[in-house]
C-alpha cells in the first residue's frame, strides 16, 4: 500500500468535510490543472478557531492532509494555527510518500489563505507569515512549480 494506515483512515473517513455558511475566513489554494484544490472555511471567536471545514478536489493524500490539518487547528488559537507546518501535518499522518509531500504543503497554505482572508475581512493588515508565494494569482499552486 502506498499510504500509511493513518492516511487511509483520514482519506476514507475524512473529518470536518463541508462548508461553513457564515465563515469568518475562507481560503482556496491549488489549481485544477495540477489536480489538487483545497478550500478551507474558518469560524473564529476572539482569537480561537472554533470551527473549521474543508472541501478538497484531489488525490488520497490531498484529502487526508486536509482532514488532518483541520483536526490540528480546531480549537486552537490563530497564533497556534499560524505555526502549523506541512511537515507537522505529514508527520501526524505517519508520513507521506515523497511525491505526495506537496499535498501537505497545500494543506498548510490553505489554512494560511483562510487566515489571511480573516484578516482582510476585518480590514486588518495580513501578517507577513500568512502571505503565500503566489498570492497575486487567484489559485495558489506554489507546490507545483
Amino acid at each position: 500500500m502506498l499510504y500509511s494506515d493513518k492516511v487511509m483512515d483520514h482519506f476514507e473517513h475524512p473529518r470536518n468535510v463541508g462548508e461553513i455558511a457564515e465563515a469568518d475566513g475562507v481560503g482556496q489554494v491549488g489549481n485544477p490543472k495540477c489536480g489538487d484544490i483545497m478550500k478551507m472555511y474558518l469560524k473564529i471567536d476572539g482569537d480561537v478557531i472554533t470551527d473549521v471545514k474543508f472541501k478538497t478536489f484531489g488525490c488520497g493524500s490531498a484529502i487526508a492532509t486536509s482532514s488532518m490539518a483541520t483536526e490540528m487547528i480546531k480549537g486552537k488559537t490563530i497564533a497556534e494555527a499560524m505555526t502549523l507546518t506541512n511537515a507537522a501535518v505529514a508527520e501526524a499522518l505517519d508520513g507521506l510518500p515523497a511525491h505526495k509531500m506537496h499535498c501537505s504543503v497545500l494543506a498548510e497554505e490553505a489554512i494560511k489563505a483562510a487566515l489571511a482572508d480573516y484578516y482582510r475581512r476585518k480590514g486588518e493588515e495580513v501578517p507577513a507569515e500568512l502571505r503565500l508565494p503566489c498570492e497575486e494569482e487567484e489559485h495558489c499552486c506554489s507546490a507545483c512549480h
Binding site: F11, G35, F57, C59
Partner: peptide, 26 residues
C-alpha cells in the same frame, strides 16, 4: 469532471474493485 482519479481508485479499492487511472496523482 470534478473528481480526481486516485481518490476514485482508492474508494473503489475499498469496495473491492481493482481499476486504474491516468491521473497524475496515481
Amino acid at each position: 469532471e470534478g473528481v480526481e482519479g486516485e481518490a476514485l481508485l482508492l474508494h473503489l479499492d475499498a469496495k473491492g474493485i481493482c481499476a486504474s487511472s491516468g491521473s497524475a496523482c496515481s
